[in-house]
């Protein structure tokens, strides 16, 4: 099996086993209703994690994701409630702002040769601070559009609902998979993660690719913010604190190498679902503190990092070569 597929396979197997064990204990978990809620409750995390996957594949990190989500919720709420704009217009503006923000971070990373860790840390403070300046208090969003969206869903047999935001997340994943594996941009992202020097010598437009990667990540974080505002019907500067870390965890658990170059967008979906499963399990159990989610995620993360070490430090198997004279 391809080396980079192994962590992904491990994640998939662990998810299947954990889900099976959870169903065995709580048969109620086996329903489209639970599955639908999985998607809805983790939609914003999943969308942000797709962007994070690209960043990590290229060998970078984006710490500004949670702050951009928070900022977007506030911006959307302000534009709708105070500016009187239609939500769709507000969404477009918010996405534009997020994209420009990401592009600026990408440009700083490439042209100033500052590590992405530092640049996006600064971006995190800027976005979080900006959100508080817009409004320190939570703004409730009341608009017919929001009500319509929250009432729109596809009903599955068994009472499960695929909500709009759950659907958006699945579409984003589909988009991410195609982008990563079937486009030249995707190839360039993997190339940067493999070796930036080689990539440049092979003609990868390093500046453009870097800027696009962070633009993509921030835009998806903006979309996650929109989804979050739809999910909570509010904009709050302190919402989604620490989501970037959950996203990084999902990406790594999903089999992407933290140092870049190896991984799959589809793996990130399983990583997000695994986190959702743990949360749902705790809700079903009823006696456990919700902080157990963090402990389980921490243990999983640690396990996967060890697994990747083992898989990637083992010398690559030599492939068979046939020489013809």
């Amino acid at each position: 099996m391809n080396r980079s597929l192994r962590p992904l396979a491990a994640t998939a197997i662990i998810f299947a086993l954990a889900y099976a064990a959870a169903i065995w204990q709580f048969p109620g978990l086996w329903s489209t209703r639970v599955l639908g809620n999985f998607l809805t409750d983790n939609a914003f995390l999943g969308i942000a994690a797709v962007g994070m996957t690209f960043v990590i594949l290229s060998g970078g990190i984006d710490l500004s994701v949670g702050a951009v989500i928070g900022f977007t919720t506030v911006l959307v709420a302000t534009l709708i409630m105070w500016g009187g704009l239609h939500p769709l217009v507000a969404f477009a503006i918010a996405l534009g702002v997020a994209a420009a923000f990401g592009a600026a971070m990408g440009a700083a990373i490439h042209y100033l040769k500052v590590p992405s860790f530092i640049v996006t840390l600064a971006g995190m403070f800027l976005a979080r601070g900006g959100a508080s300046v817009l409004s320190p208090d939570s703004i409730g969003i009341k608009h017919a559009f929001f009500t319509t969206v929250s009432k729109t869903y596809i009903l599955f047999p068994g009472g499960g609902r695929l909500t709009v935001i759950g659907g958006v997340m699945l579409l984003v994943f589909l988009f991410g998979i195609v982008l990563a594996h079937r486009t030249r941009f995707g190839s360039c992202v993997y190339a940067l993660g493999g070796s930036e020097t080689s990539a440049a010598l092979m003609g990868v437009p390093v500046a453009r690719t870097t800027i696009l990667i962070y633009t993509l990540s921030s835009t998806l974080a903006g979309l996650a913010g929109i989804v979050f505002s739809l999910y909570t019907s509010a904009g709050y500067s302190l919402s989604a604190v620490g989501v970037e870390l959950d996203a990084i965890a999902a990406v790594v658990i999903g089999g992407t190498l933290l140092t870049g170059g190896y991984g799959f967008v589809a793996g990130t979906l399983i990583g997000v679902m695994l986190q959702g499963l743990v949360q749902t399990y705790i809700v079903f159990d009823g006696t456990l503190s919700s902080w157990w989610t963090k402990i389980v995620i921490g243990a999983l993360l640690f396990m996967f990092i060890l697994l990747q070490r083992v898989v990637f430090s083992a010398t690559a198997p030599r492939r068979k070569v046939t020489w013809k004279a």
Binding site: P317, R319, T322
Partner: peptide, 13 residues
């Protein structure tokens, strides 16, 4: 004169 699986990672060769 080289017959290899071109879908495999380069580092495996």
């Amino acid at each position: 004169g080289l017959e290899i699986d071109v879908r495999a990672e380069l580092s495996e060769y």
